[in-house]
Simulated scan of single mutants.
Amino acid sequence: MPDRIAELYQRHALAFDAARRRSFLERAWFDRFIHRIPRGGEILDLGCGGGEPVARYLVDRGYQLTGVDIAPSMIKLARTRFSRHRWIEGDIRKFGAESNAYDGIIAWSSLFHLDAEAQAKLIARIAIWLKRGGVALFNTGPADGIAIGELEGEELFHASLAPGEYRALFARSGLAEIAHRIEDPDCGGMTVWLVGKV
């Protein structure tokens, strides 16, 4: 099921993008995230979509973005909107970056489309890509398991580890939990993690 994500988002790119542009419930979490990143810092957005509203929010505040998304239509939108930033069409499971390359990394509404094993691998790589003192922001499910959501009436895969499993991954990877909220009512019920590289 996770391998169908690309075709789903490609097929429904415009509808998804239009819906995303209307809502930015996660703004308070992004404020906490950028509070820890120097102005002009380098941010990696894994699963960037078309760049609305997240990339716009970060670009408008002076950050340099590299975005990765598996859907060509999404990357095309981001390139059109923010041509001075770097947009890469690719699978976040296969993306590679240099060690200590980024001040901040986002995997917002993207990490949870991977199965548990792929999530664990990506979290370990995020830790490598972050500069010391850098921060990562992502959301997951509230507990261990698989959930099937929907995108424009089609099934959409989500998976999550248990909170304790994420914390064990952080400890092994040199990450420290800064903030965590299960099903945050101020963020549309999303379960959110903010972690830093120690």
Results as ranks from 00 to 15, higher is better:
19 A>F: 15
20 R>V: 08
22 R>S: 09
26 E>Q: 11
27 R>V: 15
31 D>F: 04
34 I>N: 00
35 H>A: 12
36 R>I: 07
37 I>H: 07
37 I>T: 10
38 P>R: 12
40 G>Q: 06
42 E>T: 03
44 L>K: 08
44 L>P: 08
44 L>V: 10
45 D>P: 07
46 L>V: 14
49 G>C: 13
50 G>T: 08
52 E>T: 14
53 P>Q: 09
53 P>H: 07
53 P>A: 06
54 V>H: 10
56 R>Q: 12
57 Y>F: 15
59 V>N: 05
62 G>K: 07
62 G>H: 01
63 Y>V: 02
65 L>T: 02
66 T>D: 10
68 V>N: 06
69 D>G: 00
70 I>A: 10
76 K>P: 00
77 L>Q: 12
77 L>N: 10
81 R>W: 07
81 R>P: 06
83 S>A: 11
85 H>G: 07
88 I>W: 07
88 I>F: 05
89 E>F: 03
91 D>H: 07
92 I>C: 02
93 R>C: 02
93 R>P: 00
95 F>V: 15
97 A>L: 10
99 S>E: 09
100 N>M: 07
100 N>Q: 12
101 A>M: 07
102 Y>C: 14
102 Y>K: 09
103 D>K: 03
107 A>I: 13
107 A>R: 10
108 W>P: 01
108 W>L: 00
109 S>K: 09
111 L>D: 10
114 L>W: 09
114 L>I: 12
115 D>G: 13
119 Q>C: 00
120 A>S: 14
121 K>A: 12
121 K>L: 08
122 L>R: 14
124 A>R: 14
125 R>G: 09
126 I>V: 15
127 A>F: 09
127 A>T: 13
129 W>A: 03
131 K>R: 14
132 R>I: 05
132 R>P: 12
132 R>A: 12
133 G>C: 08
135 V>Q: 01
137 L>V: 11
139 N>C: 14
140 T>F: 04
140 T>M: 02
140 T>E: 00
141 G>C: 04
143 A>I: 14
145 G>A: 03
147 A>W: 13
148 I>Q: 06
150 E>S: 08
151 L>P: 00
151 L>I: 15
152 E>A: 13
152 E>W: 00
157 F>D: 09
160 S>E: 06
160 S>P: 02
161 L>A: 01
